[in-house]
Write a protein that binds this DNA or RNA. Sequence first.
DNA 1: TAGATTGTTAATCGATTAACAATC
DNA 2: TAGATTGTTAATCGATTAACAATC
Lengths: 211, 211
Amino acid sequence: MPEEKKISMAVIRRLPRYFRYLHDLLKLDIKRISSRELSERMCITASQIRQDLNCFGGFGQQGYGYNVESLYNEISRILGVDKRFTCIIVGAGNMGTALANYENFKKRGFDIVAIFDVDPAKIGGKINGIDIYSMDTLEDFVKQHKVDIAMLTVPNRTITEVAEKVTSVGIKGIWNFSPHELRLGEDVVVENVHLSDSLMVLGYRLRSKGY
Amino acid sequence: MPEEKKISMAVIRRLPRYFRYLHDLLKLDIKRISSRELSERMCITASQIRQDLNCFGGFGQQGYGYNVESLYNEISRILGVDKRFTCIIVGAGNMGTALANYENFKKRGFDIVAIFDVDPAKIGGKINGIDIYSMDTLEDFVKQHKVDIAMLTVPNRTITEVAEKVTSVGIKGIWNFSPHELRLGEDVVVENVHLSDSLMVLGYRLRSKGY
DNA sequence: TAGATTGTTAATCGATTAACAATC
DNA sequence: TAGATTGTTAATCGATTAACAATC
């Protein structure tokens, strides 16, 4: 990526948040915003906003602030929402079904083109218009279609095997919904959604407040 | 909470991870482990493990390491997996359905006792044996049952209203699946699951590797 | 006892915040 | 021009890592 030097994960994880807030400002028909105003809305410091944005370039103007539309476009470009990713879902259970039905992903550039499962009762069916195929056909499918991301919503006991299978056929991005950590090659990018971890942290925080 | 002084969020968010690894070690019938061995398994430094654990007390023994079972019990107690939380799901869509069917939550102390929705076609039905009630009856329900946590899987445009409703009836814990940030009272604990943020970060990281 | 490993203090590193000169 | 606000450097803060005395 020609996106300059090394951007810290802390900054990267804030990008979608900037994107959301700018999207809202656009919809509110607000034309310009200063780092101070945005900091009040987002509950972070103006300093941090200016530091974060300057990782990618000087998008503002002294004495004026930032043009909302052009900043939104810049953040969109940085996040690559114009680029498209081809995705498959592995595991047609409840979570897989929820993901397949989630319309926002397509808007953000993520196209779900197929679902895979081992259950003969599910294979051949569709979810939200997307075909469910047998796991046995995954390799052939990936040979014929470029697949960027596998969304893994399989049972915990099969996650390691499935993750190895999808990476062995060349998929580089894994969206992992199992609690297990995946140890895969250096070239594979894994994003974890650890639901029970999140819930346990909520429980801890509630108890530490005395509830 | 009598859990000593101030524990940083960074440490708290690592607790479920320790919990998982210790659970696995127990199942592997491993009796003792040193911070060095655990650090290799978890891919973090032994120093960090010792620092983290010492936020809560000295669970180890010089020259020996940590007893897996007793450390597991300590972490369980800290995370409060023995304590029970009463939860409701608001929004019986695909994500709500997925959560209602997720059996692990109960094992971790989170009991889902009711689901609420506005759709007359869904009200009166059940998901995984849990009744779906009308949103109009939420207030009465919470008056009759102590509810600790509301899991919010409602459409984005209604999230603010729903979050205000559940907090106004005294629910202190919110598990928020909408992309919106909730601005609620100081006494309310919110954990966010921002799925599209996570996916966008995955996309960013893939592109920054040149895929 | 000798070896191993913790608990804990000190050093380092990185991220956040403050400050301000540059400039629109 | 005067006022406002950025871009950027410096200061602070917090988290991670290293080191080692204590001790099992």
